[in-house]
């Protein structure tokens, strides 16, 4: 995986989060930004994030590679997306 790809994926995820959760719009969102502990994203938000990943990257979230730990940070999520697309 090229670093730039992951950066693009991170950027796309961060862009979605800013758009969907205005409360995050002013925050600096980096690969290290925690997603689950932030308190800004509830279960509905996770549903929308997963729907976004399926629509934007065409990935099927199957049982074997699904692990809530992938949602710890934007960086983890971006790497998960890259792996799922590979």
């Amino acid at each position: 995986m090229l670093a730039s790809e992951a950066e693009t994926t991170t950027g796309a995820i961060a862009g979605f989060l800013r758009e969907r959760f205005p409360a995050l719009a002013n925050r600096e969102l980096t690969a290290e930004t925690p997603l689950l502990g932030s308190g800004a994203i509830d279960s509905l938000g996770i549903l929308e994030l997963m729907t976004f990943l399926a629509d934007r990257f065409g990935i099927e979230l199957t049982d074997d590679d699904f692990d809530p730990a992938n949602f710890d940070t934007i960086g983890h999520l971006a790497r998960f997306v890259e792996r799922a697309r590979a």
């Binding site: 969907r20 959760f21 205005p22 409360a23 719009a25 002013n26 800004a40 994203i41 509830d42 509905l44």
Partner: peptide, 23 residues
């Protein structure tokens, strides 16, 4: 009105389901 800043402040005072998606 700095909408993102306002919504961020609102998100500190209200749970996620009450925070407007947009201003």
């Amino acid at each position: 009105v700095d909408a993102p800043a306002v919504l961020q402040a609102v998100a500190e005072r209200l749970p996620p389901y009450m925070v407007p998606r947009a201003i």
